[in-house]
Every structure is written in structure tokens, then in C-alpha cells.
């Protein structure tokens, strides 16, 4: 029993409440997030100077103030929400269907070689035709409305989820499979206690990647077909030389993409609390 007196720093307390943050540590964290703001502020400053000193023509680079004004104009006078909601709804639906199908088929193919052989070649074929090449045909069939876009973007979400689920399951170490046999776990216990948590890190990578692809792609899909959504707005702004609106759309797209990824990272952090990897110096 000689080892019982050995205490691990943070082993128990850290499990319950996270690392106790000291004041110094908190200050350091605050400082390091400020560092991240330096570059955007510098770019904003350069933008201010470049536009006010007319280094670039106003048509191509409106001032930041003009752009902010344009944002409120879009919001209050041009029903910007409706476009935003239209885009988000497409992404939401496509993300849901793509993830669900990817998890289902990925789990099936991961657990069974037969299922993998049945679906593998077909899916590989579909995968190698890029989404933009699918769009014309799908629009022809499903129209310029949201349905066609949901289909194409579902496909984009499906593949990373499917492939990472399959890979995640196959990469569960053999020693855990042996352990499950030694402990005489049932198939269901084996799946729930070993396969799912073992594959989860990889699955979450797939879902996160799928979500960011979906958001990027909705902009393109809306730009190519239909009369609604933030993608439509940004291409219209370009055609009408409304650079201020174009910039507003770019910033909003970037912010939403950032928020989606942030949400996914939070989810990942929660689900993979047990995981410890290198987090950088």
C-alpha cells in the first residue's frame, strides 16, 4: 500500500472543477487572447487609412464606417435576416441529413465488411464528382429552391462524416477488442462502451469538417442558383458594384463560420474530456 500516499496534482480536483485558475494564470490568458486581436486591428487600421487617403478607389474599397452603415441598412431596410435565415436553414437541414446518413452508413460499414463492400465503390464514385458539378443536375430536378441546395450540401456533409466514422471504428486498437472478449462483453456492450467512445474523436473531426464545408458551400450554391440567401446577396452586390454590401456579407459569413466552428470545438471539448493531447506551449 506504499503508493497510496502519492498524490497527483490535479488528478481528482481537476476532474471535478478543471484546473484551479490562479490570478496570474488568468492574467496570462487574458493577455494571450489580446495578442490574437493585434493583427485584425492592424488590418482594420490599414483599411481606414487606405480608404480615407483614397489609395484605392471608393468603388472598390469603401470606408469601414460606410460598411458598418451599410450593415444596418441591410438589416433594417432590406430584410437581411430573411436571407440569413434562408441560408442557415439550408445549412441546418443539410447538416442534419448529411450527418445522420454519414453516421448510419459509416457505422454500418465500420462494423461490417459486407456493408462496406456493397456501398464502397458507389460512394467513392459519387465522392469524386465535386458538389458544384452536381448542382446543375440537382437544380434541374429539384428546382432553384432550397431543396436542391439541401441535397447537394447534404452530400458534402455526408462524406467526411461517413469516412471518419468508418476510419474511427476501424482504428479502435486490437487490444481493446481482445479486452472486450476477455471481459465477455456482449455485442451491444462492446459497441457502446468501446467502439463508440473509441471512434468518437475521429467522428467529431468529420462532423466539424462537414459543418464548415456546408457553410462555405451554401454561399456558392446560392450564388449559382436562386434569388435568396447570403450567397445570392454577395454575388448580387458584386454585379451591382455595391462593395460595401459585399464586404458586409463577407464579414458576416466569416463570423458565422467562426461561430459554427467554435460551437463544434466546445462540443468536442465536452465529449472528449478524457482525452489529453499536446496543446502547445
Amino acid at each position: 500500500m506504499s503508493n497510496t500516499s502519492v498524490t497527483l496534482p490535479g488528478a481528482i480536483a481537476g476532474d471535478r472543477a478543471g484546473q484551479p485558475a490562479t490570478a496570474a494564470r488568468r492574467r496570462r490568458v487574458a493577455l494571450s487572447s489580446l495578442i490574437g486581436l493585434l493583427l485584425p486591428l492592424a488590418i482594420l487600421g490599414a483599411w481606414e487609412i487606405a480608404s480615407h487617403l483614397h489609395w484605392v478607389s471608393k468603388v472598390f474599397l469603401p470606408t469601414p464606417e460606410r460598411t458598418v452603415a451599410s450593415f444596418f441598412d441591410l438589416l433594417f431596410n432590406e430584410g437581411f435576416y430573411f436571407d440569413l435565415i434562408a441560408s442557415l436553414s439550408i445549412v441546418g437541414q443539410a447538416f442534419f441529413y448529411g450527418t445522420a446518413l454519414g453516421l448510419l452508413l459509416g457505422a454500418g460499414a465500420g462494423m461490417s465488411k459486407v456493408i462496406e463492400r456493397v456501398f464502397g465503390p458507389t460512394l467513392d464514385g459519387i465522392r469524386h464528382i465535386p458538389p458544384i458539378a452536381w448542382l446543375p443536375l440537382v437544380v434541374l430536378w429539384a428546382g432553384v429552391g432550397p431543396l436542391g441546395k439541401v441535397i447537394v450540401i447534404s452530400k458534402v456533409v455526408f462524406f467526411p462524416v461517413f469516412l471518419n466514422t468508418l476510419q474511427g471504428i476501424r482504428n479502435v486498437p486490437q487490444k481493446y477488442v481482445d479486452l472486450a472478449k476477455v471481459l465477455t462483453l456482449t455485442r451491444w456492450q462492446f459497441t457502446r462502451r468501446i467502439i463508440i467512445p473509441g471512434a468518437l474523436p475521429s467522428i467529431l473531426v468529420g462532423i466539424r469538417y462537414g459543418a464548415s464545408l456546408a457553410w462555405a458551400l451554401v454561399v456558392v450554391a446560392e450564388g449559382l442558383s436562386g434569388m435568396k440567401g447570403i450567397g445570392f446577396l454577395i454575388f448580387r452586390a458584386q454585379a451591382l458594384l455595391m462593395t460595401d454590401q459585399l464586404l458586409v456579407c463577407m464579414v458576416v459569413i466569416g463570423l458565422i463560420g467562426f461561430l459554427i466552428d467554435y460551437g463544434m470545438r466546445r462540443l468536442e471539448g465536452r465529449l472528449l474530456r478524457w482525452k489529453q493531447g499536446f496543446e502547445g506551449h
Binding site: M1, S2, N3, T4, V6, L8, G10, A11, I12, G14, D15, R16, W274, Q276
Partner: peptide, 18 residues
């Protein structure tokens, strides 16, 4: 096995011997 007190620790928090 003398590990009372570490019930809620995750494996990465344990030493090789533990």
C-alpha cells in the same frame, strides 16, 4: 490494490505503476 482515493481519475492521470 491500494488505489483508494483515485476512483475518479482518468487513466492519463495515473502513473504506470498505478
Amino acid at each position: 490494490v491500494g488505489l483508494t482515493g483515485f476512483e475518479r481519475a482518468y487513466p492519463h492521470q495515473l502513473s504506470g505503476g498505478m
